[in-house]
């Protein structure tokens, strides 16, 4: 089924081809059947807000297609992007389990397909389906590890340059380019968004990129960034 946002919507989890590759979705038959009965398949355009930090939890959002920006906001309006969620991730999980307000804001950065499950239905599902409960524990563990990594990166990096170098190396390793001499990565975020990921200003990110290009450490080709001198980038990342 084609949606208005050009998405090829997967109506049923039972027929989803990506299911086996995804931590939460790869449930045994009975649990998957039960999940199918409580989820609502929805599609969102780019820029849609799924939930807002501080809002009472309505339920969970299983990201089927597209990417979602997860951010936290300070009282002065400063935004920090905690993570870019990828397909297969369950959003709003800890808030829905604990009943505490959502601790992040989730905004789509691509057209997305999302399976929404109401909180009461989800909690009942977890109590009745031990396999699903275990999967949720695994997802929460991964999210916790990511949050700790974020604290380390923000709190223990000495400069914005170091944080940017670490981010670029991390992205290149995720794309399976890490082993290459000159890894390539698609820059899907704006300088403003990259600044929000490393807790600095847009101007600083633009200046840092200009400096990296001038020193021939990176080279931009459209939205593709080529890391020309990986050793130099690693040196910046290790604060040397």
């Amino acid at each position: 089924m084609l949606s208005p946002y050009g998405l090829d919507i997967i109506e049923s989890c039972l027929t989803c081809k990506s299911r086996t590759e995804r931590l939460f979705c790869d449930l045994p038959g009975p649990a998957l059947q039960a999940f199918e009965g409580i989820k609502y398949a929805t599609a969102y355009p780019k820029g849609a807000v799924l939930f807002v930090e501080g809002q009472a939890p309505r339920g969970i959002f299983v990201l089927c297609k597209g990417r979602v920006k997860l951010s936290i906001c300070a009282t002065d309006g400063k935004t920090l992007i905690v993570k870019i969620a990828e397909p297969g991730e369950v959003l709003g999980l800890s808030a829905s389990v604990s009943g505490k307000p959502y601790e992040l804001t989730a905004e789509t950065i691509d057209p997305c397909q999302v399976n929404f499950v109401k909180r009461d239905d989800f909690l009942r599902f977890l109590k009745e389906q031990p396999d699903a409960c275990f999967k949720v524990a695994e997802q929460l563990s991964e999210k916790y590890n990511t949050a700790c990594h974020e604290v380390r990166s923000l709190g223990l990096s000495h400069s914005a340059g170091e944080k940017l170098a670490k981010l670029l190396l991390e992205w290149s390793s995720k794309n399976g380019e890490a082993a290459k001499q000159e890894p390539r990565l698609k820059l899907a975020l704006t300088h403003e968004e990259i600044a929000q990921m490393i807790g600095t200003s847009r101007e600083t990110v633009t200046r840092l990129f200009a400096d990296l290009k001038k020193r021939q450490i990176v080279q931009a080709k459209g939205s593709t960034l080529i890391i020309r001198n990986k050793a130099a980038l690693k040196l910046i990342a290790s604060n040397n």
């Binding site: 300070a74 800890s94 929460l140 916790y144």
Partner: peptide, 19 residues
């Protein structure tokens, strides 16, 4: 699951205070 949710809330609070 409840404990991990609690841990995650605390971790995000720490991300907020550090970041």
């Amino acid at each position: 699951v409840s404990l991990l949710s609690q841990d995650l809330h605390r971790a995000y609070d720490r991300v907020r205070s550090v970041g």
